[in-house]
Design a binder for these strands. Sequence first.
DNA 1: TACATGAAAGAGACCGGTCTCTTTTTGTGG
DNA 2: CCACAAAAAGAGACCGGTCTCTTTCATGTA
Lengths: 349, 349
Amino acid sequence: MRPPSVSDVARRAGVSKATAARVLGGYGRVSAAIHAAVSAAAAEIGYRPNELARSMTTGRSDTIGIVVGDIANPFFAVAVHAMSQVLRAEGFGVLLANSAESLAEEKAAIDTLLGRRVDGMIVSPADMRESSHLRAIVDSGVPLVQFDRCAAGLAVAGVTADDRDVAAEVTHMLIRRGHRRIAYFTACETDSGRFSDLEEIGTGSVRERIAGFLAAGEGLEDTALEVVVGAVGAKRAQSLATEVLSRGAEAPTAMIASDSTIGLGLYTAARAAGIAIPQALSLVTFHDADWTAIAHPGITVISQPARRLGEEAARMLIRQIQTGDGTCAHRVVPCRIIPRGSVGDGPVS
Amino acid sequence: MRPPSVSDVARRAGVSKATAARVLGGYGRVSAAIHAAVSAAAAEIGYRPNELARSMTTGRSDTIGIVVGDIANPFFAVAVHAMSQVLRAEGFGVLLANSAESLAEEKAAIDTLLGRRVDGMIVSPADMRESSHLRAIVDSGVPLVQFDRCAAGLAVAGVTADDRDVAAEVTHMLIRRGHRRIAYFTACETDSGRFSDLEEIGTGSVRERIAGFLAAGEGLEDTALEVVVGAVGAKRAQSLATEVLSRGAEAPTAMIASDSTIGLGLYTAARAAGIAIPQALSLVTFHDADWTAIAHPGITVISQPARRLGEEAARMLIRQIQTGDGTCAHRVVPCRIIPRGSVGDGPVS
DNA sequence: TACATGAAAGAGACCGGTCTCTTTTTGTGG
DNA sequence: CCACAAAAAGAGACCGGTCTCTTTCATGTA
């Protein structure tokens, strides 16, 4: 049994399909009497407009595609929430896709979304080094806003946090407090399993942060900044941290975690090794997760404006759709450093 | 500029629309030569099938609608992640809608999704007392699986945790350890601002938990079980807990939090009031959040199988879609109690 | 050579809306 | 009372696919 269509309503109301469509679609002019009759007939048989068919002719689907790395990650969850609120208020539905931070899956997701004729897309590119699939979006004439990360050499709007600046700021702070050996932990992987070049880091936001981190130490002779890659998940982060901390006098006196899951791993590793925070080790993590305020001591965090980033991206996209304006504005939303107590003075202070 | 269509490809390849469609749609029989020619033409002009048009004739949209209370809530975030993984593997896209736990928004969301002709829906009903809109889904012939909560008197499939049982179990455990005054904190609101009747609780899962909680104390004369409502957000939970704890000798010696946000509020309240956990107050919270393992002492939690619940719901829906089978199976996935150290002996032990 | 057979290609209806163009009805003014 | 404009209703094309039905053409066999 197919659901009732305009024709069914028309037949029941004894009018032409065109007239019924005018009433049901809310366009054109119809006499009050007929309007009432059609509305009544529609209610009786439970008519519900087929938005697919409507999209077919209007060319608009009133749907926005969102592709993020991992919806279970609180940062993305909050951002997606914010986006969908803003979009819903404007009458858009949200088609959500997870890329699992895999380029292949991201491409596949974008393909499906383009096939579904979304009116716009918000994508957080898994790898800033590959942007052909993003270009395909633009070439299809579909408005696009990059989220949290931006692909290299692509003139497309984007909303990001001030990753590089805030990373540099926090690193400077650690150096100022006397730290000379600082390690940055990221979940990103490299072919060799070690970090040697910024180019190896595909995730745009992380690359920015590491760039800021390294820039902060540039020119300082006695300062050793180290980047540890492959810290995927708390478990792995913990074991990597344990390894690094076991270097004794050569071990870093301060650590920066690229996300709160890693931060948790580092914190756990320090506790397990009996290393006192902040006396023997300073710790800073990105993302203001619940546990950071509860920990002893409280963990100094870089709070990411997930909600504002999401809202901003959605608004930017809507503007682009409504005005048809393709200017590739880049909006940077500042992070906030929340000092809590996990940062102490280093050996040289 | 409209994107290229089957006709465009056909024209370029010098064949009929029907033939081109056969190649592009992957059905019927076509000679190898023509197949190659059409494929080449499609690639040249960048043809991408219009899934909307396809849905139009096939009647399937390959899209599943998911309506949850709050995607920013880790429980739902993880569940939605699991669902979309399972669904994607089966070729379905996901249209996500947030109800903000509001019945009105839930109805609106369902309406839009039905209009978009989704092939199935997974909904976590905001209010188990109202199910007319859910019935509308079933009446439209759209397969539906309820998630985490089930509406009353509705013969529709559902996947839930064993909320009632686990709540009873944890309450029994507290009673066994000597607690006589136990408070259960929920974010649900009632008209009066106080709890007097189970009927006032709209959220199915919460009602189940409270039912189990109260059942565990039934018949025990000296046991006072209390339900505190309106604990929305950590802040509010904290102030409500502070109030309850200030009752001195009349204050509960054990508390159960209906989610980890509330749990955090309770924990913070206890610390702020200088009440020792578990010596003076025992604490249990639903959801195995990060912070519960980090806290001092670790918080005993009721771990919800969010991932499994999500997978199960998705699989159940797929089965229903593929077999057309409308049996309203109810699947209950057990929660796991993770003892950590926040539960101590009560005064009567 | 003639004819049955079946594969390959084409023609055109259909899905459920929108929208343009045409026809009919209504209402107004001379 | 009729002309004429404007409003209301109808007819039918169209969007981009799928799919049925028909036609064409090559192959095999008697």
